[in-house]
Amino acid sequence: MMPGAGSRRAVALHLAVIAVLFALNFILPEYHRGIFSRVMVLAVFAMGYNILFGYTGLLSLGHAMFFAAGLYGAGLPLYHLGWGVPESFVVGLACGVVLSAAVGVLALRTTGVAFMIVTMMFSQVFYLATLYFTTYTRGEEGLVLPQAARRVELGGVALDLTNPASRYMIALAMFSIVLLATLALVRAPFGRTLVAIRENEERMRMLGYDVFRAKLSAVILSGLFCAASGAAYALLFGYVGSGFASIQYSILPLLWVLLGGAATTLGPLIGTLFMFYVIDITSAYTSAYLLLVGVALILLILFFPRGLLGSIRERWLPWLP
């Protein structure tokens, strides 16, 4: 990460991506605009995952619990207590932070595959808890957050989260904040510490770094981003259900990140978009579309083993962050 031309180009690229996404709101056909809203929210989930997996080198199979912590943390107060959107969103974030801190303290005693399994099992406990408390969560069936409750009054301006345009802009705003935060992070000393830990943890320890603390911070930051994504998903799209806590939603962010390129700032967005459109397009041609999805994944990884952006960076654009 040398300062200078590459750095300026990187900043310009990210601002350009945000500008293009902004413009797309006015260009995209209705259906695709809706999809982009969802993809941007889910890309935040993937970016959160990328902090831990891509930059810190910790493979978790339990991130569904952080996404679901945000989802339920925001959804349940709004549904049961009639709380407003901003308060509910903050509760969702808080749930993500508390959960990731607790999980981090325990799971970071392990590394490698043991970390993967421990996070997976904690997440499974969370999933079972959403079913166990069906009285409040309605378990797998889930809850519909009433349309009337999903609006914000900000300084006299009413913002309706069920309106496609405002939904797109809110998703874009959150996506942009997390994207720029990630960019700032990887260029900051803390981000370089994480990468160095990924490359050689023992050396960092001997150099006097508090490795555990750095990794715990990464887990919490990752949990915060994922919870933000979950909370936004609940509030913007109005549904909360335990499917989002299942193992599938732990594997998906891993897949999105790997497809787009681990440890690339824009990779998570690319991966999430790619995966969505592969399913959407192939399912239009055949009912056996999962076959095509599988083939597409294998071909992609054969030709782009570091993910789309990862391989592009390796071959052509070394300055990509």
Binding site: L255, L258, A262, V293, L297, I298, I301, L302, P305
Partner: peptide
């Protein structure tokens, strides 16, 4: 890492 993606692809196919 690449293997994870490839085997997820295999999972879909099978």
């Amino acid at each position: 890492e690449a293997t994870i993606v490839a085997t997820i692809g295999l999972l879909y196919i099978v």
